[in-house]
Nucleic acid binder design. Structure first.
Lengths: 179, 179
DNA sequence: ACCTTATCTTGACTGGCGTTCAAGAAGTTT
DNA sequence: AAACTTCTTGAACGCCAGTCAAGATAAGGT
């Protein structure tokens, strides 16, 4: 039976570290942020971080879970809108995590834990996109490739800076196109 | 006036280092390849690499130039084919450089020299895609957003493993779609 | 009250990394 | 053969992710 010091203290402290890491990873970049910088920002020592997280990759995954959960919660509050506007909202909302997008793809090749998160993320995005394209009348036989194209466009917009106006044109072209 | 030891020795040795780095970067990854591993593979010491390249980023750019030039030379030898087949050929040809694609996007945020290469690359790809989509009858007003979508699809296919059959379906859906 | 036990924190350390520096070897020009 | 440029190298530096063993803290059992 567990003999925790304080039952929820652990999760609180863990969350503090994740918050500190999120700011640093998104603003300065993952590779550019050392564990000691995260530690200082969170008011602990580097070794303490290693008590809560296996390694730096695990901390990255915790950050990814954190920002994704927050974005999904925001999305749930948004009113119903046309399909194109929904995609644009998502791109706008996730734009602040641009640097995380690139680093996830780079680390997926070498870090199993990041790869697992990446797989789960794509599964989620895929179901959302299939539903969206179905709503605008894409035939059932084309839903799978269209969802893939949609994913690539969203990721592409996040990984490459575009003016808001250009984003709009690209997304409108995407949702307006028919086989 | 130049007083070279041997006029072209320099370029030869530089090329040897680039070839060694290309294999290691594409097979093992950029971050996972230390300068000393490149040096050993090229039969020199790490310091010698720094005589030919400013830093590791500059070596990466040299590798990118090298593989892109080779791919473009190959493309020039290919016979004329339908637009969709041309895109699929490019994805097949570049698939071996998957790991370079992800690392370029990740390093673009922090390395000016990689960012510059990335910008040039996108300019090149954009003109190729605009021409291709024009050939299949996309109206002039939609060429720019379609080229952007095409770029994102190609990059997406390179960054995410897909069965050859799935690639085909996605690209065919892309080139068949009309506003 | 005391001892045990699990949870948490830390200082000191390790091996490897990218990069720099000063010194030297090798070839070319004068 | 002296001077100068080009190339190569051994040794070192500061920083990094990650490890280890020792200690601090609070709860449970007796």
């Amino acid at each position: 039976m567990p003999r925790n010091r304080r039952p929820q203290d652990r999760e609180e402290k863990r969350a503090e570290i994740v918050v500190a890491a999120t700011t640093l990873f998104t603003d300065s970049g993952y590779d550019e942020t050392s564990m000691s910088k995260v530690a200082t920002a969170a008011g602990v020592t580097t070794n303490t971080i290693y008590w809560y997280f296996d390694d730096k990759d695990a901390l990255l995954v915790a950050v990814l879970d954190y920002v994704l959960e927050a974005a999904l919660a925001d999305a749930a509050l948004e009113p119903e809108r046309p399909w194109g506007e929904q995609i644009l909202w998502a791109v706008d909302r996730l734009d602040q995590y641009r640097r995380l997008v690139t680093v996830v793809h780079a680390k997926t090749a070498t870090s199993p834990v990041v790869e697992a998160w990446h797989n789960g993320f794509h599964t989620l995005v895929d179901t959302l996109l299939v539903d969206g394209f179905r709503r605008v009348g894409i035939p059932e036989s084309d839903l799978v490739p269209m969802a893939a194209i949609g994913t690539f466009v969203v990721e592409g917009l996040l990984m490459h800076p575009h003016a808001v106006k250009d984003r709009r044109v690209i997304v409108q072209t995407l949702v307006a196109s028919r086989p």
